[in-house]
Design a protein around this nucleic acid. Structure first.
Lengths: 194, 194, 194, 194
DNA sequence: TATGAATGAGCATTCATTCAT
DNA sequence: GATGAATGAATGCTCATTCAT
C-alpha cells in the first residue's frame, strides 16, 4: 500500500479515536491497532502524538476551508453564495462528523495546541466573516469580527444539535442557518460599532 | 481549614487545570500540588478523577444556571429581561473563564461524560431558549429548539472571542449579543418551520 | 464497652478478613469498618497491622493449644485420650474456621512472621507429638519429630478437606483421623530411625 | 535473549518473591528489579499480577504433577511405585522449594485464586490418591478421598519440616513418608467407611 | 479515651516513545 | 520500509500510619 493512502487511512482512524476520547485520553496503541499498522509507523509518519493530532486538524480544517471557498452557487448574488456555502459547511459536518468534533468540540484551548487549532478556527471564522461581509459589507472592524465569531458559533452549535437530530434533512438546517445569518446581517437591530 | 472551604479551593484549582489541559491530560498530581493538599485528600473528597471533574461541572454549570434564572432587570419588559440575562451570562464568563472553558470548550462528547455534561449544557440551552421565547414566543418546536441552540452557540463563540479580546468592555459585548438575538428573534427573515 | 470485649470483637473481625484475603491483601480500613471502630483504635490496641495479625495468631493458636491440653477423656487409656484430643482439635476447626485458616492455610513462611507463626505451629505440633508419644512412646527423636509433623499435616489437610465437606459429621472425621494416627503409631511399618 | 527463556527467568524470580512475601505483599517492582526486566515487560508477558501468579502456579504445579505421573520404579510392584513417586515428590520439594511454598503454603483460600489453586492442589491430591489406591485399592469413596487428603497433608507437612532440617538426607524422608503411607493403607486400624 | 482528617510512600498499571532487527 | 520488543516516566489510586482535637 502506498504511503499516501496509508497516511489517509491512519488519519481517518485517528479522527475517530480523538473524537471519541479526546486528545489526552486517546492512545497511540489504539490508533495503531485500529488502523492495522505498527506503532513505530505512526511515529515514522507523524513524529509524535501531537504531530498526528495536528496533521488531523490540518486535514479536516483544510478540507472544510477548501469547500467553503470552492462553493459554487447557481447564481452569483451574495444571498445565493451564502446559501451555497452554508450547504457546503453542513455537508462537511454530515460527512465528517469526527473531523467536526475534533475541530470544534475539543481541545481548542488545550495548551500545546491552542495556537494551531485556534489558527485553524480563526481562518474558518475569517472565511465565514468574508462570506458575511459579501452579503452585507461595511461593518466597523471589531464589531464585524465579533459578529462573525458569533455566527460561526451559531453554526457550530446548530451543527452539533443536528448531529443529535439526524432525522432533520440537511436542507432544513441550511434554511435555518441561512435565516439566522440573514437576520443578523441585515436585520433592523443591526449591530452597533463600539 | 474547614472541609467546605477546602473543597471549594480544590474545585477552583481543578478548574484551572482541566481548562488548561483537558480532562485526559490533566493530572491529579498537579491538581493536588497546586491546591496544596495531598492526593489522597482529593480521593477522600471526590472519589475519583471523574468525580472531581463532574463536581466541577456541577458547580460551574449550577452557578451559571442560577445566575441566568435569577437575573433581575430594571423593568419587566422581555427586551429588558433579555439584556439582563445576557449581562449575567457574560459576567459569568468574565469571572469564571475556567468554568466556561471546561463547560463549553471541552469534553462535550467524550464518552464517560457525554451524558452529564450534555445534560448540563442542555439545561443551559433550555434556559436560553426560554429567554428567547419570552422575547418572542410562538416558534414551531423543532425550529425553536434548533434556533435556540444556534443562539447559545453564538453566545458561546462570542464569549470565547471575548476571552481573547479582554480590552472590549462587557457592556459592548452585551449589546452585540443582544442585537444578534433580537435580529434572529424578530428579524424579517424569521426562521421557517420544517 | 470495656476494652477487653472490644479487643475480642476486633480480633474476631480481623480473623475473618485475614482468612478471606491473606495478610498482605487485607486492609486495616476494612477491619476497622467491619468492627465498627475507628482506625486509630486499632493502632492504640494492637500497634500495627503485624501486631494485630500476631495477636490474632496468638489468640487462635492459644485457644487450640489449651483445648488440646485440657481435653478430658472418659477413661485414662492412651487410646481414649487420643480420641478425646482429636475430637477437641476438630471441634476447634468447626467452631473457628477462620482461626484455623489463618493459622494453617496462610502465611506460615512469610518473612515478617515466619518466626512467631512457626513457633505457634511448633508448639501445636509438639502437643500432638506428645499426644502421639503418649499413645506409643519410644520413637527415636528425629523420626518422632518428623512423624509428628506428618501427622499434624495429615490432620490439617483432613480438616481442610472437611471444611469443604460439611455434611460429614465430626464423629466420622474423628474416627478417620484416629485410625490414621493409630496406624502410623502402631502399624507394622513402624517408622525407622535414621 | 529469546522470549521463552526470559519468561522462565521471570517465573523463577516471581516464585522467590511470592514465596517470600505472599501474593498480597509481593510487589511487581521487586520482581521486575530482581529479574532485570522492566515492569511493562511483566505486563506484556503476563497481563497482570494475578496473571503472573497463576502462570507460576501453573508451571510449578504442572511440573510436580508431571513428575508424579512420570515416576519410574525399578520394578512394577505397587510398593516400589509408591516409593518412586514419593522420591519424585520430595525431589521436587528439594529442587523447587519456592514452587512448593507458593503451591502449598499460601493462598489456598484467598478469594481470587481459590479456584485455580485449589484445582491444582486437587489434581495433585488425586494423583496421590491414585498412588495410594494402587497400593491398596478398595476404599469406600468418601473415606478414600478423606484419607488421601490426609496423606497429602502428611506429605506436605513432612516436606515443610524437611525444609527446616536440610541436614536430613532425602532418602530418609522418603522412608518415613513411605512408612506412614504404608501404615495407613495397610495398617490394622484400616479406615472405616461412614 | 477516641476519632476525623490528613498524608508519605507505595501500589498496579499504562503510555508515548525508541531501537535492534 | 517496517516492526516486535522493550522501557522510563507517569498515571490514577490505596494503604498503613499519625496527629490535632
Amino acid at each position: 500500500m502506498p504511503r499516501e493512502r496509508r497516511e489517509q487511512l491512519i488519519l481517518d482512524v485517528a479522527g475517530q479515536v480523538f473524537a471519541g476520547a479526546g486528545f489526552g485520553s486517546a492512545s497511540m496503541d489504539e490508533i495503531a491497532d485500529r488502523a492495522g499498522v505498527s506503532k513505530p509507523m505512526l511515529y515514522t509518519y507523524f513524529g509524535s502524538k501531537e504531530g498526528l493530532y495536528l496533521a488531523y486538524i490540518d486535514r479536516a480544517g483544510g478540507e472544510l476551508l477548501e469547500r467553503l471557498v470552492a462553493a459554487r452557487a447557481p447564481d452569483p448574488t451574495p444571498a445565493s453564495m451564502l446559501r451555497a456555502r452554508i450547504t457546503e459547511f453542513l455537508s462537511f459536518v454530515e460527512e465528517h462528523g469526527d473531523g467536526w468534533r475534533v475541530l470544534f468540540q475539543e481541545l481548542a484551548s488545550i495548551r500545546p495546541f491552542a495556537e494551531q487549532v485556534a489558527d485553524m478556527r480563526e481562518r474558518i471564522a475569517a472565511a465565514i466573516q468574508r462570506m458575511v461581509e459579501d452579503g452585507c459589507p461595511g461593518y466597523p472592524p471589531p464589531a464585524a469580527d465579533a459578529i462573525a465569531h458569533a455566527l460561526v458559533g451559531a453554526g457550530e452549535s446548530l451543527a452539533n444539535w443536528w448531529l443529535d437530530h439526524p432525522e432533520i434533512p440537511r436542507a432544513q438546517v441550511v434554511v435555518w442557518y441561512y435565516d439566522v445569518v440573514q437576520a443578523v446581517v441585515s436585520g433592523p437591530g443591526r449591530p452597533t460599532a463600539p
